[in-house]
């Protein structure tokens, strides 16, 4: 930080030598992915910003969200009759189901989409373990069952929008540091009732599609469970929902807003506190529809770049 209230330079550690380096800059754009950008700001403490640069609002690390994820796999016996052909590269079964209940009365807010996976992909280790475990026994019959079941599974992945909540955020860990001695982040995660209802709805929808199409839902309690199976079933969350961060769509940790008291950045992703500091990744936006955040990141970065260029030309930055 300079005495003029602007960011002056970036410090980094040269991994090859372990020495600290300094790069001066007229303006600084932080774009290290949502959580790492928050970490960089929180670790950049000074007399002016004891809680981290640009963090007079105290909301850096807050409003963290990830996509809501819930999955199910179905077995479709009619696919056994499909002629074998090359499925390499198909992966998603050429299907995508966007949110279809927009504007309708649902018991949760926002929406989700469904991704489908399956096909006669390249077999790998683990591919037929499920068949072996369900069929049990041994012999030619088991071998044939593995073959006939090949390509008859379709996976359903629901990906939905999460609403930020107070109990989900990241902050500097008071004791754990990385190998360079820099504090790492500590995460707090809690899905709210809205996300749980959404995941439950995904499960109901998947099951209804699978069963209406003549398939059977895979998984669920075993008929003859071993202690291991019982433990796994007991550990299963109800409804099945991804762990926070598992869908790797984390965003919202350095949020934008018009009010400098409750947000870090303005509408151009420029810090309210430090005029030559910008954030250009998924950290500025706290709300993301069910889709991947990449296009939103690109659009906002583009807007921020144009604004930065314009301000630099005018001599404002």
């Amino acid at each position: 930080m300079g005495s003029n209230g602007l960011a002056e330079a970036v410090l980094y550690i040269d991994k090859a030598t372990g020495s600290e380096q300094r790069v001066s800059a007229r303006s600084v754009v932080v774009a290290a992915s949502a959580c790492e950008s928050a970490r960089l700001l929180l670790n950049s403490r000074s007399a002016q910003f004891p809680n981290g640069i640009a963090n007079s609002s105290g909301v850096v690390g807050r409003y963290l969200t990830d996509s809501v994820g819930s999955d199910m796999t179905g077995y479709f016996p009619q696919l056994e009759k499909m002629p074998a052909h090359n499925h390499d590269g198909v992966g998603g079964m050429h299907l995508y189901m966007p949110w279809w209940r927009f504007g309708k009365q649902n018991d949760f807010l926002r929406g989700y989409h469904i991704e489908f996976g399956g096909g006669r992909d390249m077999p790998g280790v683990g591919w037929f373990n499920g068949v072996c475990e369900d069929e049990e026994g041994y012999g030619v019959g088991l071998k044939q069952k593995c073959r006939s079941s090949y390509g008859t599974y379709i996976g359903f992945s629901g990906r939905g929008e999460m609403i930020p909540n107070e109990k989900t955020f990241c902050e500097l860990d008071p004791s754990v540091k990385d190998k360079w001695g820099i504090p790492v982040l500590r995460f707090h995660w809690q899905w709210s009732e809205n996300e749980l209802k959404m995941a439950r709805d995904m499960q109901t929808t998947f099951r209804s599609i699978i069963e209406s199409a003549g398939g059977t839902v895979l998984g669920g309690p075993r008929k003859y469970p071993l202690p291991k199976d019982k433990a796994r079933e007991a550990a299963q969350s109800d409804p099945p929902i991804s762990e926070g961060g598992a869908i790797i769509h984390e965003l919202g940790t350095v949020r934008m807003g018009n009010d400098a008291k409750t947000s870090v950045l303005n509408k151009n992703c420029q810090s309210h506190d430090v005029k030559n500091l910008f954030v250009a990744d998924a950290a500025p936006f706290v709300s993301n529809p069910d889709k991947n955040p990449t296009l939103t990141i690109m659009a906002l970065s583009w807007k921020t770049s144009e604004y930065l260029l314009d301000q630099a030309k005018k001599g404002e930055i």
């Binding site: 074998a84 052909h85 090359n86 499925h87 390499d88 006669r120 992909d121 390249m122 077999p123 790998g124 280790v125 683990g126 591919w127 037929f128 373990n129 068949v131 072996c132 071998k143 593995c146 073959r147 090949y150």
Partner: peptide, 18 residues
């Protein structure tokens, strides 16, 4: 099953076309 279906004869038996 892992060993069989990642072997040459297993892949052929399966009819993997890719």
């Amino acid at each position: 099953a892992d060993a069989f279906f990642t072997s040459k004869i297993g892949i052929k038996y399966l009819g993997y076309k890719g």
